[in-house]
């Protein structure tokens, strides 16, 4: 069984987000780039599955669409435990562009399970996975919170509107995953960091046949919230009245 994990690169959660060039671009100064947290969890789960004694998982490949400066992020995925990596050499434009690049590359490859993060910490679009599955004409399962291999069976849990479900799925399929699939992202071990250097990272040319469907025209900073109105500890009653009379929420 071969697993493919799609990873994207996003600013670290604690990074300050500012824009330059007439608010048309992200100011990249001082930003630390990390593996998108959802993708990191999906990779963590793939590694856990591979490490299980008697596992049927033969290999974990990570794939990323980005320019050369994103290679440290890919190396980290290899240090965590992926076996090999593919970088599609293109500047991401929108989710459809990224999904199309991925689809063109993956179409000729053979994977049983493709994992993508349900969301991403940059454009928060929740889009690439579903678009990719559609382009590959592959079954997709969204909002996955667990992925288990039990004998010949592949079982996944997912959130649906109004509950949770356990499904049995036939490969190949694509799952967009969220928290629960793994709890904490894998911290790379010394051995993994040392080995990451020598693991294969293949760079593939992007296709110029795809065009984005959307364009990020400009950005603005969200208006600051008004100052907090604080009540003394013993005055919960006043707060309740403010919520009732002022905010009219209760």
């Amino acid at each position: 069984m071969k697993i493919l994990v799609c990873i994207s690169e996003v600013p670290d959660t604690t990074s300050k987000i500012k824009h330059i060039n007439d608010n048309k671009e992200l100011d990249k100064t001082g930003i630390q780039w990390i593996i998108n947290p959802w993708d990191e969890l999906s990779l963590t789960r793939a590694i856990e599955l591979k490490e299980t004694p008697g596992s049927k998982v033969e290999s974990i490949t990570v794939v990323h669409v980005g320019l050369q400066d994103s290679e440290p992020t890919i190396r980290k995925a290899l240090a965590m435990g992926a076996d090999n990596a593919i970088r599609i050499d293109a500047q991401p434009q929108d989710a459809y562009y990224v999904a199309s690049q991925l689809a063109k590359t993956i179409a000729s490859m053979d994977f049983d399970i493709i994992l993508t993060g349900l969301d991403s910490a940059d454009f928060n679009g929740s889009s690439v996975g579903g678009m990719l599955a559609q382009q590959l004409d592959m079954a997709s399962i969204s909002a996955v919170t667990a992925l288990n291999l039990e004998g010949e069976k592949i079982l996944v849990n997912r959130d649906v509107s109004g509950g949770t479900q356990t499904l049995e799925v036939q490969p190949p399929f694509l799952a967009t995953v969220q928290k629960g699939i793994a709890i904490d992202p894998r911290i790379p071990a010394m051995r993994g960091i040392m080995m990451a250097r020598s693991k294969p990272l293949e760079v593939l040319e992007a296709t110029n046949e795809v065009t984005p469907l959307t364009e990020y025209v400009s950005y603005e900073v969200p208006p600051p919230r008004e100052a907090c109105r604080k009540f003394p500890e013993e005055n919960a009653k006043e707060l309740a009245h403010a919520l009732h009379n002022e905010a009219k929420l209760i």
């Binding site: 440290p72 790379p188 040392m194």
Partner: peptide
């Protein structure tokens, strides 16, 4: 790259 990765880990 490795040194940065170790620091982050």
């Amino acid at each position: 790259e490795e040194q940065k990765m170790i620091r982050q880990a």
